[in-house]
Design a protein around this nucleic acid. Sequence first.
RNA 1: GCGAGGGUUGCCCAGCUCGGUCAAAGGCGCCGGACUUAAGAUCCGGUAUCGAAGGAUUUCGUGGGUUCGAAUCCCACCCCUCGCACCA
Length: 966
Amino acid sequence: MEQEYKPHEIEKKWQKYWNESGIFQAEPDKREKFFITIPYPYLNGNLHAGHTRTFTIGDVVARHKRMLGFNVLYPMGFHVTGTPIVGLAELIASRDPQTMDVYERLHGIPGDILPTLETPEKIVDYFKLEAEKAMRMIGYSIDWRRKFTTTEETYKKFIEWQYIRLEEKGLIVKGSHPVKWCPNDNNPVEDHDILHGEEATIVEYTLIKFRYKDLVLPCATLRPETTFGVTNLWVNPDVGYVKARVEKDGYTEFWVVSREAFRKLTFTDRTVEYIEDIPAKSIIGIKLTNPVTDDEIISLPASFVRPENGSGIVMSVPAHAPFDYLALRDLYDADLSDYGITEDLRKIELISLIKAPEFGEFPAKEIVEKMGITSQKDPKAEEATKIVYRREFHGGMLKEITGKYEGHAVSKIKDILTRDLISSNAGEIFYEFSEPVICRCGTPCVVNMVKGQWFLNYSDPEWKAKVYRCLSQMRIIPEEYRVEFENKVDWLKDKACARKKGLGTRLPIDKEWLIESLGDSTIYMSYYIIAKFIEKGDLALEHLTLSFFDYTLFGKGDSAAVSAETGLDSGILEEIRSDFNYWYPVDLRSSGKDLVPNHLLFFLFHHVALFEEENWPKALAVNGFVSLEGQKMSKSKGPILTLESAVQEYGADITRMYILSTAEQTQDADWHKTGIESARRQVDRFYSFAKDVIENGERAKLGTEFKQIDCWMLSRMQDYFLETNVALDSIQTREAIQNSFFLLINDVKWYQRRGGKTLLYYILDNWVRLMAPFTPHLCEEIWEAMGHKEPISLTQYPLYNEDYMDEGAELAEEVIKGTLEDIEEIIRVTKITPQKVLLYTSPAWKVAVLKCACEMQLEASLEVGTLIKVLMANPDLKRFGKDIPKFVQKIIPEFKSGGADRYEIFAGPGLDEHALLKESASFLEKEIGCPVEIYSADSPAYDPEKKSRFAEPLRPAIYIEGKKGE
RNA sequence: GCGAGGGUUGCCCAGCUCGGUCAAAGGCGCCGGACUUAAGAUCCGGUAUCGAAGGAUUUCGUGGGUUCGAAUCCCACCCCUCGCACCA
């Protein structure tokens, strides 16, 4: 081996070897298979630290399983369908300064190449080569024969087939959906087009239609159930209102809304026509009908009503809404004769409709009085609203006044009620932003209903039920995410699955549309099986008919018929089918947690829709994000750290080691320079340990005479084997590296410090295999230097061997370590320079007491009194009658709290402390730097300060002679 | 607002599923020592507070509670991160 660790040389060598030997090209055989997939990367940039984390986790699992004897398939493809690549091409073509800067400087695209990437095709061609190069550079054990790009014609055939089959099952439907829309550009706005309000979401309001003569005064609300408690409406006297003709779903009505609301309505799926302006005054003081209760209510003036919110008219529920209560109270003594209102507003009775545990009849009134809120303008009014809302929503039940809804939880009523309101034409759905949205062009955006859109019918209850069943049979890693998945299945609504822009496959049932890119990446794991045959030249585009996919992936039909139709050899067809049967289902799909509510969910939906239950996925795993020096990464704006640049700077193994050990599983990782620098030193240490062992010509000496420390080391290693395997099985790479590397290296240090030699080769032999999934190049190199011919990637992973566990040795070593620490502490505290250390092992009677206690513990009869009684009955012990109770009282609590394992080991196999300390005396002398003498507390030859009385089993007494320092 | 995750000793981060052995693993940083002409690397020790004998005391977001005993269980509250869609 080279004197110095040179990662790049080693890595190049082994990557070449892996590639040429084809050892990661997986073919079916007799072994049990393991099919692991990671979502293919979307190529609008180079692979970065986030990909590095997700893909490296996948590779480690793949390598671990392979070393455990599984036949592992780890394939990879490239995702390019959708709009971002088109957008990027446009930005490059227009030489957008930020884009040019970020892509040249941070993505590392050479300055002479970047300007040529002016079309989506060129971008795809460039990045797919770069991505593969990067993944090879970091040493992923991918079967590259199966790679593909999602714009390939053959892949499009596969997608077309899938959508035809989904449509046949009735899972693709047509409908409308709301989008953020700029009326000026006449286009949907995407997040990067937004000047203000990037955070805004589209909120679903219910529009309650209050009626006055032939007019409708609609009010938008998030809490339709409160319609039962409406006492009045609020109209702003200073706002301009209009009357409009509104047509929808066959009805025609005349609505009065604010001017702003009218504009918004024109973008909804209603036909609206302006009729005339309506002075605010003319709709104040009128008597309307509540469409739900048929009660007559009055409209009142209120300046807090904002014309741009909802319809510009607000319904008032003073029993439950503090603002409404305050506004109403403020009017009690106002002169409203101007509006023709003469009645006494105090006569308006509050209507209570929700029973919430913390409140009485009128929560709004109650809280306003309790908090001492004086008017609508009081900032505390906002807080009061929140409190009431929260308590009512979570703990509230609908009262009798709500009729058939009585007893329903407030939190569960919205969907039911909205549906009923719509069917009785008492209400409608109305979409609104959670905050104002302004387009880049400066125009306020609106919610627009896009009509005639194609949807994947994810809300279908039967479909969801299948996904639930699938989930319930799956392993979710970590298990805490199961509830998250279940929630998301619940929440998922129909999803628009086609769009007009971008790269992709045309929707076969409506060629005007392109299949949206999340929808074309749901069951492509099965395509990896086919891709190999395409690459080999066995399959051509014309072979990929519907029946071809039906046969190979579903097992429908027979090979002879498909062969006749496609002209394919039936042997090939059967081989593909049999490959599919071997590799499917997916055993593990592992991904970043950002894909939980979208891709991973769709992955499940499409699998359960199309495949038989036996081919449903087996397990899902999620991991956290990666940030850079505390900053969030951004592909388009930076900062970003590419996989390639990390590997170039630090090497593949160090990069892998760092990214895997810096954070656990779903925790986010922060990549920082000091962290990876230290990983470099750690790997260096491992290298030099290996080099030393190999150069010293050490060989396995298992079975020769073992010293205490050898037994200890062997035992400890078994523990790390166990922990590492368990951690890897649950994809806790940090825990795995903690055990297989950091804890182990510390034990190896102790082993060598204690003079251990015999096991050095054994340690290396196992350690290098243990580390192989994490730092595979380095481990191959060491393995080869040890004289092995087979690559380490295909050898057996170390497994826990119970026979090598040695509790006695571990306990003995603990005693030595503890004794050394105690001595050092005494020296530190007393500041004496030791000249001689005297150790006294426990007197025999204390040992006898312990043994007796252990026996009684086993019989579960251990009590202070009974133990003392038993001991006193023993004539040999009775002599120590004065000391026994004290010792017993000290020991018993340890037993009671379950902390007496060590005593049981001590009492069981037996540990000769005196011999142990004698044997270790020279070690202690070396460490402390002065002579160490061992005595028994039973008959100490020298004990000037009577320290021996402190001696206990596993805790020798210490006396230090020396000069007192400053 | 809804959903999910998280707040631990200078920092990162374990432990908290199964309360006691937890002043709390590991890494980083820092301090001291060994080695070295020196630096780096490596090794050893320290790193809540107090302590001239291996000990004691106060800590694990805040406030309560359960218990002989809580970082760990229960309740309330505060704060932070992420997702909420047609976009990959």
